[in-house]
Amino acid sequence: MSDYIMEVKDLKTHFHTKKGIVKAVDGVSFKVKKGEILAIVGESGCGKSVTSQSIMRLVGDKKSEEVTGEVLYHGEDLMKKSRLDMQKVRGKDLSMIFQDPMTSLNPAYTVGTQIAEMPMIHEKKGKKSAWNRAVEMLTKVGIPSPAKRAEQYPHQFSGGMRQRGVIAMSLACDPDLIIADEPTTALDVTIQAQVLDIIRDLRDETGTAIIMVTHDLGVVAELCDRVAVMYAGKIVEQGTIEDIFDRPKHPYTQGLLNSVPRPGSRERLKPIEGQPPNLHDLPNGCRFAERCPFVMDQCIEKEPDLLEAESKGHTVACWLEEEGNNDGDRGNTEGRGTEKVF
């Protein structure tokens, strides 16, 4: 058995629509180690959420949805599991936290009941011990007077509390992998900081691996160990946070980092010009070519593969890397946070 909890190989999720095939996820591969936090980062429409939903098999059942590839979870391909088996995995070993805490809790049941339901279903626990587990989980996520709170309904919780409740629910069966889809996006900054602290502490305590789907590079820098940057359905760059933040190779990653205003800085922002491509009408070559400041002829002709850059585990899908002509002509790329590479 490898030390990877999950290996995703060439995952593709295509939606068949009236306008043609939308290649929301188009050949994504990554691995998640035990206890690590992997960020999947990208802008809206890049396929990051669809990736997480495909892994959980939340898409793919309808005729118009076509999911291919392998999702090896402890060596077992989730794609091959029956729907019933998948239900057993979901919520137990593999759980998910959604963006909107308002809708991920059922307003008709108390928060405690909803958390207790998980161990009751998956571990065949009795009502009493499941309830105790629920209270314990609420304590873990830092909800004050958890025993009392467990008996309350979601509407009696504030937004931040609800998201903690959702996290508690996802933890109830000691999962070894949690997929969190923008878990702090709907929250205010000060509450977000609290929730990020909780997620970090949980990982440190329980060794649960986390796939963190987010658009916020700040969250990535603060919380994650490794990063996969997605653009138009593909991973364009993958590496440790040091690789990504200190030595970004892909022009898109560099562009993203340069687009964010940094506190205290007055330098003019360097946005990425243009718009992301239409997912049902993708270019033949590199998907970023149209917006890329370093675009070359071959970028338009052929799509680059995701290949390893100089440090191990740091992969980039860019012709600039593949040709070995990675610096020199890119003198103007390094902005704040981007250190020049050799």
């Binding site: 900054v189 000060t190 977000q192 900081a193 609290q194 990020l196 602290d197 916020d216 590079l217 700040g218 969250v219 990535v220 820098a221 603060e222 919380l223 946070i241 040091e242 933040f245 200190d246 980092l257 964010v260 940094r262 506190p263 704040r336 946070g337």
Partner: peptide, 16 residues
């Protein structure tokens, strides 16, 4: 509390 996209910006956190 603002998450800064800079891994070297180790600042003192005040979590409310």
């Amino acid at each position: 509390a603002i998450p800064v996209p800079d891994i070297h910006a180790k600042k003192e956190k005040i979590t409310l």
